[in-house]
Design a protein around this nucleic acid. Structure first.
Length: 537
RNA sequence: GCCCUCAUCGUCUAGAGGCCUAGGACACGGGCUUUUCACGCCUGUAACUGGGGUUCGAAUCCCCAUGAGGGCACCA
């Protein structure tokens, strides 16, 4: 039976790279009627948090990647958290100790660092081996357990990359039990993959060099290893690795720009505005730390658009789960036949390891944006309504106040003209409150006395419309308004500015209907007052 | 530095020796449509990293060079 797993460590949010790994494992299991296991690798006691684990679960659920075995959302830790399996690891750790395959080592981290530094200075690779000279002898300090890796070439057939071979003197004796008694990743992963019956390990290529070590462990334990497949990595467009630090990097860059541009802005005043100690902000700006909380606060204070990295970033930016999944699947995998818009079912039936390429890909946000727009345009009202409700759960736009009925109206107006739900949320603000008049638009469309005369004529035309104020009753008057200008459309822009505040909005007819007569007339009047009080030069 | 891996348009990719004057999509340019912005439609620019082989024939196979990426933790 095919059984795959996704095994994140709960040290942060689920980022798109992890989501892709999860997706491929999920697709592979689902395609062949196998099982998909989710396991939380929380063997790093310092960095792992329960909130992070819960967040990863929530993100996977939002993506619709369901697991057959694993943690139960909302429940306490179960067997699929490695921190709950210490007894199991200890049993096998003892087995290796007794068989002589593992041994204790006593170096402190500082000693190891010194040994590495010396090796580097002498221009030779550092490998910790049992028979190397200068090993520390048992002392008062805690010890770790290391696995004695045989001095043999390890060969295996990677299902994506083909035959891989690593020479015997490249190995070193990895730590398998840390001094805090927890197993290391290398050990826990082998034990769990075996015990959980994982048949295929599909993971990112950054793990390729771990595989020989894991294979050594399988052999020492007397187990048959699973098949391995290492997928190409995903990078930013500038070829840097996509990482959560991209967000702090962008925030830091923005702060430095603003400080340069705006002399009145200082670290102190900014920190005060953000409600944090200026020493913290200082440290952040000087790259001494990358606190995500500061990054977030900075984005709020400076109104920044940070690059989306984590799954929840994309959710908050108004990407649809299906679109994100479809897009991510296409980085490093292709179904052939020039196909790329693929439903979840198509993805599943078309997926194969053979379709996975060997070259690293770049994350092209422009294409994702296009694809998300395609998904939005193809979705029916109900589907979009659901997506918006999900979006509203994690964002704070005025759109949040809208009833389902109003949302349906807005969907009709924005479906064709939005790339993300956030664009709709942003652009539809004027439906929920007074418009913010853009000086540029006023200057362009209400520059002359003739423009202001048109504004009054528009108001006069609209005022005469009897109830009901609807598409039918507005159609004729709208034509008259358009006919007002010498250029077709010029007068319509005046009305558009009046109701929306800017030069861009959905078609006026629908816009006016949704706004209602009272609001429309009021905004017309308000704009007239504005331009009269401050006559354009 | 050492080890491993990879190499087709700016980007994602199709291509498994002749179907390739290298196909599709995004992005970009031009045009049409249009009450704004979009959407839509038509259309254009654009790639086999280089050098050696193998073969009647190479984007496809082999070697070397170059370039890119990954790994070298008591992180996963």
């Amino acid at each position: 039976m095919i059984r795959t797993r996704f095994a994140p460590s709960p040290t942060g949010y689920l980022h798109v790279g992890g989501a892709r790994t999860a997706l491929f494992n999920w697709l592979f299991a689902r395609k062949y009627g196998g099982e998909f296991v989710l396991r939380i690798e929380d063997t790093d006691q310092v960095r792992s948090t329960a909130e992070s684990a819960a967040g990863i679960l929530a993100d996977l659920q939002w993506l619709g990647l369901d697991w057959d075995r694993g943690p139960v959302p909302g429940d306490a830790k179960n067997d699929y958290f490695q921190s709950m399996r210490l007894d199991i690891y200890n049993e096998y750790l003892n087995q290796l100790l007794q068989s002589g395959a593992a041994y204790e080592a006593y170096e402190t981290p500082a000693q190891l660092a010194a040994m590495r530094a010396r090796a580097e200075k002498e221009k030779r690779p550092f490998r910790y081996r049992k028979n190397m000279p200068g090993r520390a002898s048992p002392g008062a300090g805690p010890s770790v357990l290391r696995f004695e890796m045989p001095y043999e070439t390890v060969e295996f057939n990677d299902l994506i990359l083909g035959p891989i071979s690593v020479g015997g003197d490249e190995h070193d004796d990895i730590v398998i039990r840390k001094s805090d008694g927890f197993p290391t990743y290398h050990f826990a992963v082998v034990v769990d993959d075996h015990l959980m019956g994982i048949s295929h390990v599909l993971r990112a290529q950054e793990h390729l060099m771990n595989t020989p070590k894991h294979l050594g462990l399988y052999r020492a334990l007397g187990w048959t290893p699973p098949q391995h497949a290492h997928m190409p990595l995903v990078f930013n467009m500038d070829n840097t690795k996509m990482s959560k630090r991209d967000k702090s990097k962008a925030a830091r860059h923005a702060v430095q720009m603003r400080l340069k541009q705006d002399a009145s802005l200082t670290i102190d005043s900014l920190a005060a505005k953000m409600g944090i100690a200026s020493a913290s902000l200082q440290a952040f700006v000087q790259q001494k730390m990358d606190d995500p909380a500061i990054t977030g606060a900075l984005a709020g204070a400076l109104n920044l658009q940070l690059p989306e990295i984590d799954v929840q970033d994309f959710r908050r930016s108004g990407y649809l789960a299906d679109a994100l999944l479809n897009f991510i699947a296409l980085i490093g995998w292709s179904p052939g036949e020039n196909r790329e818009m693929l439903t979840r079912d198509e993805l599943r039936s078309l997926f194969s390891l053979e379709g996975i390429g060997k070259t690293n890909g770049r994350f092209d946000r422009k294409k994702l944006l296009w694809m998300n727009g395609e998904y939005i345009r193809q979705a029916d009202d109900q589907k979009l309504l659901k997506a918006i409700e999900s979006f509203n759960l994690v964002t704070e736009y005025p759109l949040k106040q809208a009833s389902a009925k109003v949302l349906i109206d807005l969907i009709g107006m924005y479906r064709e003209r939005m790339g993300t739900l956030a664009e709709m949320a942003e652009n539809s603000r004027f439906f929920f409150g007074p418009p913010v008049y853009e000086p540029k638009a006023i200057k362009k469309y209400l520059a002359t006395e003739a423009d202001i005369a048109h504004l009054r004529q528009i108001a006069a035309i609209l005022r005469e419309i009897p109830t009901p104020w609807d598409a039918a009753s507005l159609a004729g008057p709208m034509e008259s308004i358009i006919a007002l200008g010498d250029k077709r459309g010029a007068a319509a822009q005046i009305l558009r500015v009046a109701v929306s505040g800017g030069a861009v909005s959905p078609p006026l007819l629908e816009t006016l209907v949704l706004l209602g007569k009272d609001v429309t007339m009021q905004r017309l009047k308000e704009l007239e007052g504005m331009v009269q009080a401050k006559p354009p030069v």
